[in-house]
Design a protein around this nucleic acid. Structure first.
Length: 155
DNA sequence: GCCAACGTTGGC
DNA sequence: GCCAACGTTGGC
């Protein structure tokens, strides 16, 4: 049974991977997530075709800078097996991987992003989980309404 | 299974 | 660069 299309907000630091990088690559494996909640969203809940708000954090003007979509089912994050790599996970084995990811495909880059300030100011976006104080989760679910509201705010 | 210590995140 | 909030670790 296929679930309905779902929507997500995915954070990234543009210094390491930006919407421009995704536009150039067309799609990318969302590797390096090392948080259980975020992993569970990718492993258990994401489906091909889900909508993604692409968010830039830790930068001059944090905000949503484009749209993407989930482009694969989840599969083990290969970086967990890279000895000496930044994301190496000694507890993981090929038989029992710890970390999972999905592929994310480029959809659209906004000319101007929707800043975190604008997100906070919009009354229909008060429920956004990433706006909660101290929210550090790099992947959060958003409602269809929230997704569309952000898309409409964007230029 | 508690909880203090630690490292990280991320807006400002 | 600051610092509050958070998740994870590890000793007990």
């Amino acid at each position: 049974m296929k679930k309905e299309k779902q929507y997500w907000l995915m954070k990234t630091e543009p210094m390491s991977y930006s919407i421009d990088d995704l536009k150039r690559d067309r799609k990318t494996a969302w590797s390096g997530v090392r948080n259980y909640q975020a992993r569970n969203f990718m492993r258990d809940d994401m489906q091909v075709g889900d909508g993604v708000l692409f968010y830039h954090s830790s930068c001059k003007e944090p905000g949503v800078y484009g749209l993407a979509r989930v482009n694969s089912k989840s599969y083990p994050d290969p970086t967990q097996f890279e000895k000496g790599g930044m994301y190496y996970e000694p507890r993981a084995t090929k038989e029992k991987p710890m970390w999972f990811l999905v592929d994310v495909a480029f959809e659209k880059k906004f000319k101007e992003g929707v800043s975190i300030r604008a997100l906070r100011e919009h009354k229909d976006l008060r429920g956004l989980r990433m706006l909660e104080l101290g929210s550090r989760l790099s992947i959060t679910p958003v409602t269809q309404k929230e997704f569309e509201t952000v898309a409409l705010l964007a230029v």
